[in-house]
């Protein structure tokens, strides 16, 4: 077998893949923001003293963690359109699907990190006259975020990899670009290896960024 990476330079293949990569990055980034937001809300909600809020959050977690992402995407994109006439664009369905799915995992990271903070911190804040939420946002979360970073790096990397499933709901991201090209020229190995490298580079970037962020936060205070 001979490999022919020259194929990248033919038929606009490389620009097509780069375009796909850009879509992947954009979708992942938007989904990541959504997932952080959902994760924070569900994570905080799951610790609520109001039973109905915490059970609602537990249900969210159970559902989105307990069903395959691919099925969720199908439901969002095809399911909603055909049975409820809610016609989301593929990109919107993709970002929502990825974000809601990953948000479930982020909520567990948020909850775990918050619960790992000594309860004396909340007591100190409350004894100074701060409210529960003031203490949460000024005292607990800034400390918890440092502890969230390593597991968040894992989650964001998983999110990037999972974004390849969006190809199935017609989003023109990296995986779909590759599929389109190989359907034409059968250069499976060259093309898929190329996008594997692309995914790898993106994920490597994420882990480096998070490590930098960790270091920056650590310099500004806590070493514990």
């Amino acid at each position: 077998m001979t490999l022919d990476f020259g194929i990248l330079l033919q038929d606009e293949n490389l620009p097509l893949l780069l375009q796909g990569l850009w879509v992947t990055i954009r979708m992942t980034f938007l989904a990541l923001i959504l997932s952080c937001f959902i994760g924070l809300v569900i994570g905080l909600g799951s610790m609520s003293k109001y039973k109905w809020i915490s059970s609602l959050c537990a249900t969210y977690l159970a559902w989105f963690r307990g069903t395959p992402l691919l099925v969720q995407l199908m439901l969002l994109y095809y399911g909603l359109a055909i049975s409820l006439n809610i016609d989301l664009t593929a990109s919107l369905a993709g970002v929502l699907g990825l974000g809601m799915y990953s948000g479930a995992y982020v909520s567990e990271i948020v909850r775990g990190a918050i619960q790992s903070i000594d309860r004396g911190q909340m007591e100190a804040g409350r004894s100074l006259g701060l409210s529960h939420w003031q203490t949460m946002f000024k005292v607990i979360l800034p400390q918890a975020i440092r502890r969230m970073l390593p597991p968040l790096a894992n989650e964001f990397i998983a999110l990037t990899k999972n974004s390849s499933l969006l190809s199935v709901i017609t989003v023109a991201e990296l995986m779909r670009a590759a599929n389109t090209i190989v359907a034409d020229n059968y250069k499976y190995f060259e093309i898929y290896l190329t996008i594997a490298v692309f995914y790898f580079v993106v994920n490597y970037g994420i882990s480096v960024l998070i490590r930098l962020l960790e270091r920056k936060l650590n310099v500004e205070g806590v070493r514990s």
Binding site: Q121, A124, Q143, E220, G221, V222
Partner: peptide, 10 residues
């Protein structure tokens, strides 16, 4: 408090 409970990030 006995164990201070200072805010370590501040």
């Amino acid at each position: 408090f006995q164990n201070f409970n200072l805010f370590p990030h501040l």
